[in-house]
Design a protein around this nucleic acid. Structure first.
Lengths: 205, 205
DNA sequence: TGTACATCAGTGAACGCGCGTTCACTGATGTAC
DNA sequence: TGTACATCAGTGAACGCGCGTTCACTGATGTAC
């Protein structure tokens, strides 16, 4: 169903969608411009009406990924309000949920090798995403006495790292292939222990 | 300096070394059989005297990586003995140190897309590496009352995930590009907070 | 409403390239006598 | 020590392939009158 006339109707987005599918199936290596064009039912040359080239297409895919990612994180944050703790935990869960639901987007963002600083727009939207996590961390850190309060940026980085590590190591391939726990359980328990270490959760429960 | 006669002397290893260098410089995507052969001063066809093909060469690179990795982790573990805590922390640091010192090996192991189960030998040596971390986690967990003791495999997975995440997100590119902290500081502090959450480190210090 | 024209998304052929892989070969090295 | 032979690591030419990219083009769509 072409939204608007011309020949294809919405080729630009069709190409980005094909890229997501290909990247998901074959990894960033497996993605080719020609194959994406073929999946969109179009000649490879047609791609150049909408993108400067292969890299540019991947960058747009990553940009769209960060946009959705930031929205999801923001929504998760809001869902936990007004509890700073609930908001923080929800953003952690949202990270993994995003990686599960949009694997092609995730890979385009984090494994395709394109730089966050490729364009100003890409840097902006990537910053928006990490900004949500930092906001959640900052709100949470206010429950720690200022004297012994670690920088919020630091522990948002910790949570980001653990989330990313769980995705990369345990959320791929057949369930249980690398660990007897699901990625969700691992992340949930990991964050729980970490927050207890920060003194933000009672030591016993 | 060819070790032993024939034509090249030690082409097999020279090819693996070229692979490490190329993978480090250009990522797993950038690695090509032809380029590796060229760097070793040899025709692409010569590669087939030593490997079944491109994949086989990468698998051997990953295998050597896991071997060194396991040795390093084991050594770190021993260096912390007889303190279970010191051993555990040392293995965490060794993880990051390995990623820093052998970036080509690291990428071949974790980002080249080759499966750990490609050969029995590869699975064995990869298992040896994660075994060290699990051993360290198990020893440490014995300081927790059995009733509230989480499975050692679980928190070795947590530490592995955080280490891997820190490497992928913060140990690459120019220092400070994604965070004001060094990867080392982030990992050290992250593990510290996590261990406090487990009750293995005093809450104040 | 109908006609003439402008726009421009997509075509199709062509390019040069480096890839992984194969094959019959060659010639240096190691070995038997 | 010298000669004949076997081994086999590396050669060089060739292959078919799909890649990203370019270019002059075409023909459907939108617009002006």
């Amino acid at each position: 169903m072409p939204k608007r006339g011309y020949h294809h109707g919405n080729l630009r987005q069709a190409l980005v969608d094909a890229a997501f599918k290909l990247i998901e199936q074959k990894g960033p290596t497996g993605f080719t411009l020609s194959e994406a064009a073929k999946q969109a039912g179009v000649t490879p040359a047609a791609v150049y009406r909408h993108f400067e080239g292969r890299e540019d297409l991947i960058a747009e895919a990553a940009r769209q990924g960060y946009e959705i990612f930031a929205d999801l994180m923001e929504h998760a944050y809001q869902s936990g309000q007004p509890s700073a703790l609930a908001s923080f935990e929800a953003t952690g869960r949202a990270y993994l949920a995003f990686a599960r639901k949009y694997p092609g987007h995730y890979v385009a963002m984090f494994e395709s090798g394109i730089s966050i600083n490729r364009t100003a727009e890409l840097a902006r939207v990537a910053g928006r995403a990490s900004g949500v996590l930092e906001k959640a961390a900052l709100a949470l850190s206010e429950h720690i006495p200022p004297a012994k309060r670690p920088p919020a940026v630091m522990f948002s980085a910790h949570i980001w790292a653990m989330s990313h590590g769980v995705v990369e190591l345990f959320a791929r391939g057949p369930a249980g292939s690398r660990s007897p726990f699901t990625a969700e359980d691992l992340l949930e328990s990991g964050i729980g222990i970490y927050l207890r270490g920060l003194g933000l959760v009672p030591p016993d429960e």
